[in-house]
Nucleic acid binder design. Structure first.
Length: 222
DNA sequence: ACCCAGGGTCATA
DNA sequence: TATGACCATGGG
């Protein structure tokens, strides 16, 4: 059977039909997407919005000023995003690297895998953060795997859930066409869905994936 | 008061 | 390779 009829694609269609197209990733410039990718690490997006608003007020949401900013000062500005000392260090390190590489045009010219590896080599940027940047800032077809993806797809019994990141990602790449818009929208839908359903609440009833989902409120079915 | 959020690193076994 | 500790704010 073709990729269009895989359970992965059907799940995408169900989510899209139910939730509609999701606006994702909200940002004014591509660099802001990368900043957001670092700030949102294990942090609610509402907190990231506050931190980004603060950065803009101080004109620190661009590579140049960020690269030369003072770490402790920056930390106070991004305070609402949590882990502010770590993240201030990560933002500065990333901004300096970004400029050293020649900025967006130089990086965009790299092959996707080269760009991904280069990002992973930076301390503070792991696989999900790197893929956020690759997919949303550079528009290259790399699927973003997060904890929601593991949880939802293991409950659908489509994956074990314990696979390594790259193994899980490879699975999505083989089940779906290498389409940037598809990957962007799919990840967005997964996050939207996870927030409304698939939590430890009765909201799981009426979920658009209920037929396939093995989760029951109060316990994991087995 | 407790739990979790659009993770990642480092030390230890 | 695989756990555990740590980072920290804000909303439910």
């Amino acid at each position: 059977m073709g990729v269009e009829s895989s359970a992965f694609y059907q799940t995408y269609q169900r989510l899209l039909d139910y939730y509609g197209s999701q606006p994702w990733w909200p940002a004014e410039h591509v660099f802001e997407i990368m900043v957001g990718a670092i700030l949102t690490q294990n942090t609610a997006w509402t907190n990231v919005e506050k931190a980004i608003a603060n950065l803009k007020q101080h004109s620190l949401c661009e590579a140049q000023p960020l690269a030369v900013s003072e770490q402790d000062h920056l930390a106070q500005i991004i305070r609402p995003s949590g882990y502010f000392n770590q993240k201030a260090q990560r933002l500065i390190r990333f901004a300096r690297w970004y400029l050293e590489q020649g900025g967006y045009p130089s990086l965009q010219a790299l092959a996707p895998e080269q760009l991904r590896q280069a990002l992973l080599a930076i301390n503070g940027i792991g696989e999900e953060t790197a893929d956020d940047m690759v997919l949303y800032a550079f528009a290259m077809p790399y699927f973003v795997i997060d904890s929601y993806t593991r949880r939802i797809f293991s409950r659908l019994a489509l994956v074990a859930g314990t696979e390594k990141y790259t193994a899980l990602q490879a699975r999505f790449h083989s089940e779906l066409e290498a389409d940037v818009e598809l990957y962007q929208q799919y990840h967005a839908l997964i996050v939207t869905h996870a927030k409304q359903h698939c939590m430890k609440t009765p909201e799981c009833m009426g979920c658009p994936l209920t037929e396939r989902c093995e989760f029951e409120y109060g316990r994991e079915k087995k």
